[in-house]
Each structure stands twice: as C-alpha cells, then as structure tokens.
Design a protein around this nucleic acid. Sequence first.
DNA 1: AAAAGTTGATAGTCACTAACTATCAAAATG
DNA 2: CATTTTGATAGTTAGTGACTATCAACTTTT
Lengths: 301, 301
Amino acid sequence: MTINFSLRQWEYAIAVADLLSFRKAAERCHVSQPSLSVQLQQLEGSLGVRLFERDRRRVLVTVAGRPLIERARRMLIDASDLMCAARQAQDPLVGTMRIGVIPTVSPYLLPRATAALRAKFPRLITEWTEDKTLALSHSVEEGTLDAALLALEAKLGDFSHATVAIDPFVLVARPRDPLASSPTPLRADALRNADVLFLDDGHCFREQALAFCTKAKAHELAFRATSLPTLTQMVAGGSGVTLLPQLAVATEVKRAKLRVRAFADPAPHRTLALVWRKQSPMVDALRQIAGAIRDAYPQTG
Amino acid sequence: MTINFSLRQWEYAIAVADLLSFRKAAERCHVSQPSLSVQLQQLEGSLGVRLFERDRRRVLVTVAGRPLIERARRMLIDASDLMCAARQAQDPLVGTMRIGVIPTVSPYLLPRATAALRAKFPRLITEWTEDKTLALSHSVEEGTLDAALLALEAKLGDFSHATVAIDPFVLVARPRDPLASSPTPLRADALRNADVLFLDDGHCFREQALAFCTKAKAHELAFRATSLPTLTQMVAGGSGVTLLPQLAVATEVKRAKLRVRAFADPAPHRTLALVWRKQSPMVDALRQIAGAIRDAYPQTG
DNA sequence: AAAAGTTGATAGTCACTAACTATCAAAATG
DNA sequence: CATTTTGATAGTTAGTGACTATCAACTTTT
C-alpha cells in the first residue's frame, strides 16, 4: 500500500470540511484559492474518491468523504503530536502550553498558579482559556488545548491526569441563618429542607453541589447564578444558603458578612486535576506543571 | 503548530531505524542513498532533533529519536489506513486482503474458505499467511496483515472480532485404549492419569488442551508434536491419547484406525474468529468475509 | 601493509510540483 | 440588471526531491 497523498492535502481537505468553502479554507491555510482547488483535485484523483460535492453555490462533504476526513483528522493530530514531541525532546519546558480552566477555579487559582509557573519555568508560556468542562474536554480531545484544569468528578473522556488538590465544599449562610450556628462540622442531613442556591447549568460545580444537596433532601431555589460571586451575593441578600468550593471562600466571602461551615466526613468535595489526552506528547512537561500548580495551591488556614 | 515534515521523510527514518543502515534503507524505499541521506538531514534539521547517531561504521537511533520514531510509526499506520479506507470507499470487496491463520486451522478450513470467498466475492483476492498466534497478532497490530483467523481463547491484543465457529475438542485414542470404550460423552475426569500427547510450544491449541488436561489430572508425555498429523500418528503408534479439535478430525483420523470421543458439557473448545485492529478501515469487508467463512465452515455430522 | 570494498556525506544537475496571478463562468445578491 | 461571490482553469515561476558522480573514512581482504 503506497501512500500517494501529502499531509498538506489533507489539511486543505479538513479546512474545507470545516468551513464548507474553498475560499475561506484557502484563507485559513494561508494559500491562494486556486492552489487549494488544485491540490484537492489531485487528492481526490489519487484516492479515486470524490470528497466534496461542489455546486457553484455550496460545498458538501460526500458520504464517502466523511469517514475519510475523520481518519485524516486523526492522522494530522498524530502528525502535530509528533512535531510537538520533537520540540519537547529539545526541552520539555520551553514553548507554549495551552491550558483550559473551569470558571469556578480560574479566578481563585490562576493568579497564584501563573506566578508560580513563571517563576519555575521562565521559558514556558502558558495560554489560559476559561470555559465549562464539556467545551474544555472537547478542546483537549481535538488538540486545540494541550490540557485542562478541572474537576475529575465530572464526566470526562479518556484522559490521563495529575491531581492538583482536593477542594472541599463548604456551606455559606448569613449569620442569622439557623444553619450558621449549627454545630461544626456540619452533617449532611443538617441541610434537610434548607433552601439552597446553585449555579447555572453546565457548571460542573452545580452538578456536584446539587447531587450532594438532593441526597440531603434540601430544596433547590428557582434562581440560578451564573458565577460564584453572584451566588454569594444572593446568599448575602437573604435568598437562602449555598455551597462554595473552599478555594473560592477567601475571595468571595470577605466581601459579604457571611458564615462558613465545613462539612463532616464524608465531606463533599471536588478533585482538581490537570488532564490531557492519553497520548499527548507533553506528558513530562504537563506533570511538572501540575506539580508546580499543586505547590502553589492556597493552603486552607 | 505548523507541520514541516513529510510522510516520506518519516518512511525513510523508519526504514533506517529498522535496518540500521542508510544504504539498505534506501534500497527498501526504492531511492538512492544520497536522496535518503539528504531527506533525513532535512528532517533532523526541521525538527531540531538528531534522530540517528552515525558513526562511519554503524548507525544508532538516538535516545531522543526513539520515541519520535515510534510516534511516526503510528502516524504512518494511520496514513496507510486512510489510503486503504479510500480504496474501500470505492468498493469494500475489491482488492487484496492479507489474512493470517494458525496452523491448527489452516489445512482444515482454508480449502473450503477460499473456495467460498472466491465464489462470493470474485473480485477479492485473499492472501493467506500461516503462523502461530503470537506472530499473527503482532502482524495485525503493525498492519502487515489485515486480519487473522485464530482462537479467541489465546492471549490477544486489543482487537475487534467476528466469531466464525465454536470448535470443540475431542479425545482420540486407539481402539484398544480403555478410554476408547468408556461411555460417551466423556467426562473430564475420565482423563485422570491418562498419558496425553500435546503439540509443541507456541501453538495455542497446545495451551488450551494442556490447561484442560492438567485440570483433569492427566499426564503430559515428554514428546511434543510439531503438527496435528504428527500428533495423530503418534497416537496411532500407541504412544498414548490426545485431544484434537473437531475441525481436524475428518482429515486426520480417517488415515489411522482411531476412536473419537466427544466430551460432556462443559466441553473443552476453542472459539475461532476473525480478528482485526479496532480501527481497521476494512471493518465492513472483514465482517462480510467472516460471515462467508462461517457459512463455509464444515458442519459436524 | 596495500588494495578493495564498505559506509554515509556532498556537489551538481534536472524534472516535477506546488505555489502564485490573472481570468472565466455560473450563481447569488442587491 | 449590475455587482459580488463562488470554484475552476491557464500560464508562469520558484522550490524541492530525485538522480549520478564523487569523496572521505573506516573495515576487510589479499
């Protein structure tokens, strides 16, 4: 089986499949549209398979082309992994690392983490992207991100990971709330019939907190906050109580006069970890980065 | 991450890594040695990594190069899968299919199987290779074979499969042997203290038969046969009894005057199946081929 | 010890290929 | 109906990868 196509031809094909336009694809590939047209004709010719149905008004991927392009995607990820592995072979901790973070971690950990990384690996540039777990895990899978910092409790694909910290959940309530003065540590069933506020859909912290509270037979209030600051403000405003990750407490609670109570074991918590594609070429560097973040993680005082 | 190497360059690199010689590698790649030399220099240059340590008397793969070449291997398998998938997209059952078979199946099944395949898929050429399970499974993994027909009970890699038949084991003994006249079906413990002959190391049938007989507390005779015909002849010669796969009985036993006894449930058996790499591009065709072999499988009368 | 045969690297040449610009024809848009 | 936008085509050019011839260093043979 002789290979008679080039990686570049498939890059073009994938660009067209993504953008459904020859011109836009050509732009993305930094070549002229005719060059791309010709290359794709040659690719189709050498494969003996028509990949695209081009009407003069629209471009469609053919039925035969679809699975081929998916395979090609994988091949190109392999190729770019290889490229990357070569760079890593020169020095694992020089270059750029694209890492995703979930919104309930980002503001509380990144300031310290980035500082620590800059200090420890001065020649490493970290590019951080904030998004929810689902989007991040897709990005990691398709190679748009090198890794993501998120909670292992969420539904994830088949990743490798290095744990950064265990982040326990705590109860936050106004001082006059009965829960605020109940004995510490708090048992889960203390939440029975309590009115609890949660984050909006899509946040993994919502799912976890909700699961815990549902089991404890608490009530979910109708309002859903879009961020932890909002959530905290709602509690301060008297709408009920909520759970916060310990990580966020120092930042969020000092603004409002609220009481914080820890839970008795087995305490609800999330496991923050750096995750990456199993065959990522940057394992070594990623482990070291996870270690540095772990060391920089704020100690609960 | 821009890719600045070509698939061909890595083909060259892999050839050198395999053969540890530029000239031989060039020969395998059907190019002149200087062409290959230059391409590898460019590859190393664009990667910034030295892949080979070339003394003037020998070539070594560098420590940095080893993992890169392993990655490249995977990439090239992807590429050739893609090539193959394209061909399959034209018509899954046209072309050449390289299939391995184990020696304890090959002579008894291939005549019927190849005839059936020829009849059903006239434009498909099947190339058969006979070898033991371990070698076959390696070949399938690295893409030298498209599939292999073997017993699922053996230790295998992570393959997909389609079952072809269940092949029970039967006891073969001389007429005068006490086992030959014991009640049918035979219970396993009838073998206690019997002298049993087995195949040579490496045959999966040996492992399976041996496991069954060991559990039944039979004795293994010192002689190890290299094939089922030899095994049968030894029994006919009075050296003891043996197990044969049902599949082989019709062919082997008619030559010698031997008695065949089936075992009571749970009868020892092997599950013959066609196996292939999970991401093989030829799934469709392979399933159909397995189906055709299944239909052609000799019915036990 | 000299000759012959290895090895991989280098130099010079040539043909193919993939890029470019300019342009076309058809359809969508205003 | 003019304008814009689509992908395809033609012609040109620069780059690249192949070739042959040759070198320099080392091993083996005589």
